[in-house]
Design a binder for these strands. Structure first.
Lengths: 223, 223
DNA sequence: ACGCGATGTATCGATTCGATGTAACGACAC
DNA sequence: GTGTCGTTACATCGAATCGATACATCGCGT
């Protein structure tokens, strides 16, 4: 859900569309960002719902000395044209969005919804985890863990399926192997995260330091 | 692209929509399959393009003894209603699709297109790699390798970005770490795949055995 | 005899993507 | 100063896809 991403980013800072997309690109690891074709409609949607609101609209920086009257005339003409709505492109004039109280509520709602098991959504939720209370955060991690375990069982069932054995060539086996390894790796990472979370909760919990140690893990097996 | 998936599966065996979806679910690892909302339109599209064609349409199994004349009346009535186009659902009557010569050409085209760097697409391509000549297959793997290296450099640049240092909390660092590890892991897997491919090409190349050894790797570093 | 879950085809509205258009701005060249 | 190029920025379009839902039949268990 793109709504989650927008609200999460706007909670931390007021931003305009273009900047929003850039930040999302960093968060979601370069690829797998969102396109303008979904971002702008989503912003309009959220604004209509009252979850965000336009804060500022700079049509022209007043400090810039325009020197000539002709330039001023031109700008005024263009403003009139734009106002008339006869032209598509609106040119420069960044719309800065901010989150509302309602938007903040919606964010917590989206962060906690247990029905979404999407990978992208989980990444976003971790990124915005500081906005969740400790209990909800741990619950989120545990739910993810259950989901990953479910997938691993799925995979194992498929690996030891006598039916497909015949029409399975080496490349398919390689893919299966990759999936299994990736899954195991993800589980190990998640377990480290949970462990760090637990030990941070025990004492006073400095939420800004606990980077999980890169080698620790507590992965039980079901052989 | 869903076209790739459909054509690839139909090359190996004639199938109907529902079965197609099931196979795709297995191939793309349970989640990340496709929905009927894209599958059926895609099949119609491909049929219009002449890449696939409906082979068989079983409307009713003739061996089933319907015993009563009333049942026959009812079925006839329903057939009439369906024919009139006033009703949406068309009920049972599986449409089995097969690939055409044109479809086979299109498949090779889709398997080789160098502009698609999508993860899903790569997985599908590996799954259907046996339909590619040796050279094209190796090229595909090498292109993937380049793409993964590009992403790794992207990630490293982001890791050592002094600008973001301030507003980066522990969860963001954990996410970044996860991405880096996943990427390294994927690269190692790919290198094993390439290695297996190369050694298979040297001799007679039994394309059905060479599963890459789980521990080998030849990952050069850019420290 | 009957209901219920699996198998099947199909469509709808909403969302998202990818491409494209428009435009202002900064910077540098000349 | 005035081209014109690259970056920033907003916006929309058509196509692809999703998730939900409808409709219909088969087969099974009870």
């Amino acid at each position: 859900m793109i709504d989650l991403a927008i609200l999460g980013l706007l909670t931390e800072q007021e931003l305009h569309g273009y900047e929003l997309k850039k930040r999302l690109g960093e968060l979601l690891s370069s690829r797998a960002s969102v396109s303008f074709g979904s971002l702008y409609p989503a912003l309009a949607r959220l604004e209509a719902q009252g979850a965000v609101k336009a804060v500022e609209e700079r049509t022209s920086v007043p400090s810039a000395p325009m020197s000539g009257s002709l330039v001023g005339e031109l700008a005024a003409f263009r403003a009139r044209v734009r106002e008339s709505g006869l032209v598509k492109g609106t040119g420069r004039g960044k719309k800065v969005y901010g989150i509302t109280e309602h938007g903040r509520e919606r964010l917590v709602e989206l962060l906690s919804d247990p029905d979404v098991t999407d990978d992208r959504a989980f990444t976003l939720r971790v990124a915005f985890a500081p906005h969740l209370p400790d209990a909800a955060r741990l619950e989120l991690f545990e739910r993810r863990r259950t989901e990953l375990l479910r997938r691993r069982d799925d995979l194992r069932r498929r690996e030891s399926d006598p039916g497909r054995a015949g029409r399975t060539h080496s490349y398919l086996r390689a893919l299966l192997e990759r999936d299994a390894e990736n899954l195991a790796h993800d589980l190990a990472w998640l377990d480290r995260l949970i462990e760090a979370e637990r030990s941070a909760d025990h004492n006073g919990a400095d939420r800004s330091i606990p980077v999980p140690a890169p080698q620790a893990h507590l992965q039980e097996e079901t052989p």
